[in-house]
Amino acid sequence: MKQRVPISLTVNGEIHELFIPPWQLLLDTLRDELGLTGAKRCCIEGQCGACTVLIDGKPINSCLYLTIEAQNQEIVTAEGLVEDGKPHPIQKAFVERGAVQCGFCTPGLVVATKALLDQNPNPTEDEIRIALSGHLCRCGAYVQITEAVMAAARETAQKEVGV
């Protein structure tokens, strides 16, 4: 049995050549090998959304995804949304709308929101709620989270029309 295999992983635009156990999950590779601890180790059963990252723009639970199967795809984490040291408008909206309390669910939510708004720039409130239904927030900031996503959607839309 091969204990480690060479893989190539593109994370936040950077290519990493790694030597990992084939049974390693993407969440563990991101955290333990690459030091990207924004994706959180929480329920590790795909029930909380705290480990959400994007694979080719799609939100997935990195606790249920083998790293070896994530090769040749673009992986984006919460850290990767920051551009030139500036937080993404979604991250900004979460902070300014009081959607961040303990913050453990926040990176996953921010990433899921990115996927939502990329696909669906003007989501209805129902669509926002359904899109984030796989994300637990025990601090109970759901109302603020919804408001943050709506605000981020408005801001992104304004940017696009150049307001």
């Binding site: 959400t52 694979i55 997935i60 939502l116 984030l132 796989g134 994300h135």
Partner: peptide
């Protein structure tokens, strides 16, 4: 399931 689940 969740959107994250749907994609996988």
């Amino acid at each position: 399931g969740s959107i994250e689940n749907l994609h996988v």
